[in-house]
Amino acid sequence: MARAVAEYYAGRDPFGRAGDFTTAPEISQAFGECLGLWAAVTWQMMGAPAPLRLVELGPGRGTLMADALRAIAEVMPAFRAAIDLHLVEASPTLRAAQAARLPGATWHDQVEEVPPGPAILIANEFLDALPIRQFIHREGGWRERFVQDGAFLELPPEAAPPLPAEAPEGAIHELAEAGLALTRSLTERLRSGGGAALILDYGPAEAGFGDSLQALSAHGPADPLAAPGSVDVTAHVPFAALAEAARGAGAAAHGPLPMGLFLQRLGLMSRAAILARSNPRQAGLILSGAERLVAPEGMGRLFKALCLCHPGLAIPPGFEPV
């Protein structure tokens, strides 16, 4: 999966109508604006350190960050002046698109390359593209699923990680080792340097069995095994496991909670209404895009929001208990 994902992103722009899928920043500019203001308030809660490493993992075309910085500059220019912008992106094609929108940014292949110091990190639809391992329960034991010649191959696992003791026949357990490793790396950074990481992606809030491996091509479902490197291959993000890993490593974890609820708490629908009034010809499109992000039948329930932060930081905006 890792090689296929790397090949897929290396030489293409997969976003938008002409690509394979559309992400939240491309659906509504209010999305990036609200996240920018979320970062601004979080920065204030951190004591307004300067410089502040503002980091985005997998920035796509740079749309989210461009919208965020525009809102930050208008509402909190002191925060904009304190920002040292860093983008974690391996694709040369996407780096070029980001550079056109985000001059002055610094690029890295891995988040570990970002210089130390207080940081706010944003990962929107990033972890779903990280590789996973799958195990299937057969005749009272676990077998690992591999891919060979375009089909699944089941073998007894070598050096298997801890797996559930009991499971129904045919149950699939997914292990997101890369996502957990990234979480631990972020946790160590936040504990030592201070700050917060906001993760927005799709997946369940609670752990469970299930096969979430999927692929998209031209905005429709595709066979994830048929043409490696030519389709968008993803898997659900195990939010409960990420939160547990972060807490186990000494960070605070808030959420996960439905993304629709999180965005409504940040005022996304109100911002969309303002945008619609200022652009009457596009009002319907603006409002329907915002509704798609928050509605349970759209992205609002399947997508989740999770915040990892320094244990001494107060609860960031949007995650306040009801």
Rank of each mutant, 00 (worst) to 15 (best):
S192A: 15
R189I: 11
E158I: 06
A197W: 12
V147T: 11
L186Q: 06
E169C: 10
G194L: 05
L180N: 01
L163G: 03
A167P: 03
E158C: 03
G141F: 04
G193Y: 11
A159W: 01
H173I: 00
A181Q: 14
E158P: 00
A181E: 15
G140M: 11
P162M: 07
L175R: 13
G193K: 00
F146H: 14
R184F: 01
A181H: 08
L186E: 04
S192N: 13
A159Y: 00
R191E: 02
E188Y: 03
E166L: 13
E144M: 12
E144G: 09
E154I: 00
P156V: 04
P161L: 14
G150T: 06
G150W: 07
T183I: 05
E144L: 05
T183E: 09
R191C: 13
A160I: 02
P156F: 03
L153I: 13
E144H: 09
R143E: 15
P168M: 04
A165R: 13
Q148L: 11
A181G: 12
G179W: 01
L155G: 02
D149G: 10
F152A: 04
E158G: 12
P157L: 11
I172H: 10
G150D: 09
T183P: 04
S192F: 05
L198Q: 04
G193M: 01
W142E: 09
G195N: 10
V147R: 04
R184M: 02
